[in-house]
Design a protein around this nucleic acid. Structure first.
Lengths: 162, 162, 162, 162
DNA sequence: TTTT
DNA sequence: TTTT
């Protein structure tokens, strides 16, 4: 009924941009978020590694401007997907579907547009078409679109979070 | 570096209260949080099922006052635990460590105190001791404390989130 | 750069629905939010009284379904307006521009639609026209649109938050 | 009942550290938070100027490490104070009482400790005493403690937010 | 494995 | 009264 998450952390690696069969952009990255305490007597501060997913225009902006190590703020909602793995066991995947991403470290620019604002919002560019007619069909939520097996990904457009 | 989650949803079942070997209270429950849209042409609104963990005083208050179906607000942080399952495979578990829980539906009272405030905060009652000397040992983060196998649970006090 | 507020509290009075000269709906209400502590040795818990503003479709839904005393969750951003009062002194007004409002108490229905979902989001119905051509002009941010002086309100459409 | 704010912005000036009569540290600063849109046809992006208040240990850390222009994340709750000004008119002041502040730009260090973590939490150092016996008295919430008139400030310890 |  |  209300589902809001705000995180600040650093990318563990470069973001991965893909496209659904219908041509909708999705990018995925992981944020390392330091815990607010040290535990177990150890001096080393632990982190949580949290998976972030962005869609459409925001996905492309993230792919262009985010890089491994960058300090980044993410706003979105928690989503729990599930799929059956190759042993027929149900697996649950928790991700943050981001609708607002802030680049907190300027970087010398992305690989496309120059002078981009350090500013990316799910509603900017929204409605700009992007041809979301549903094809690809297939049983929804049945396999993990983020397991990279070399084959073309099969994200049903039903997975679109808006 | 910053990690904040706010959810409103309904308990899918009664909360489960347990104690670590050192006597620290932990309660676990799942919140069904309706998604803000309907998907796949279907009219039925989907939900995310999100696992919540509370500790100490807040754990006991939740166990006393929350019940299946109750509308509840939760504030906390995302935590990603991992452990190796019985096939030696690493499993990741995402949970919300709550530090603030609000009971949005009055209920005729819990099973202990009467007239309790619909209000529960991790810092209330905090510092009240509760004997957190670390015993129990065991390899930290190696097994899921929430897999209920009938045996007494073995949550190391290293797992305490503060 | 990032500005997010989440509140749960009760309406201090019925919401007020108005329209800008261009016909855009605005509703205003105040949320009483109990503080998480009691202060000054007193037993009486204090509250903060926080002004909420909603626009367009969300404004109309709030006007229809919210009433004095209702427990309500609000998500939005803080905005600080300023205007010069009749003594020529600059006055600052802090409000929450809500984009998501949840009705936490069912109520027997609003005064229009029956069976409405307890659910109201700024993006639902967004883009549904509502004739936002800018007329009315006038000096922007010069007087408080929420001071009710009996005269027709003068909210410039420049004040629209999106 | 629930009151949570998260902001990212830049300090408009250096923070101001003061002490209540009982010796409790308070620091105040203003965050300029860019709005997520440009308005009125203008190309210049507007900002909200939001007042932040921190107490105790967190106040001292902020005074040491924050400076004008620094990109900063703030987590806290909205508070609305009121007082009667010199014309006997009630004035309302909205502030964010921060309990978590993140320094998003490293800076070459503060003016006291070296090697400080870019990390400041209200609960660290909390309970460290700080002698909060209430003296100074005076009518609570009657005058604005942040109007700087050259005289020693008179913040009653009743104003402490925890 | 899920709530209204 | 405002920051980059």
């Amino acid at each position: 009924m209300l589902n809001r998450v705000i995180l600040i952390g650093r990318l563990t690696r470069d973001p991965e941009l893909r496209y659904t069969p219908a041509g909708v952009a999705v990018t995925q990255f992981t944020l390392a978020v330091d815990r607010p305490f040290t535990s177990g007597g150890s001096k080393e501060r632990e982190a949580d590694f949290i998976n972030i997913v962005t869609w459409r225009q925001l996905a492309e902006t993230c792919a262009n401007y985010l890089r491994k190590g960058r300090l980044t703020a993410v706003e979105g909602r928690i989503q729990v997907r599930n799929y059956d793995n190759n042993e027929g066991k149900r697996v649950y995947v928790t991700e943050i579907i981001a609708d607002n991403v802030r680049f907190l470290e300027s970087s010398g620019g992305g690989n496309r547009e120059e002078g981009g604002s350090s500013n990316a919002n799910a509603n900017a560019g929204y409605g700009g078409g992007s041809g979301s007619s549903n094809r690809g069909g297939g049983s929804r939520e049945q396999q993990d679109p983020f397991i990279d097996d070399g084959k073309p990904i099969d994200i049903s457009d039903d997975d679109l979070p808006f």
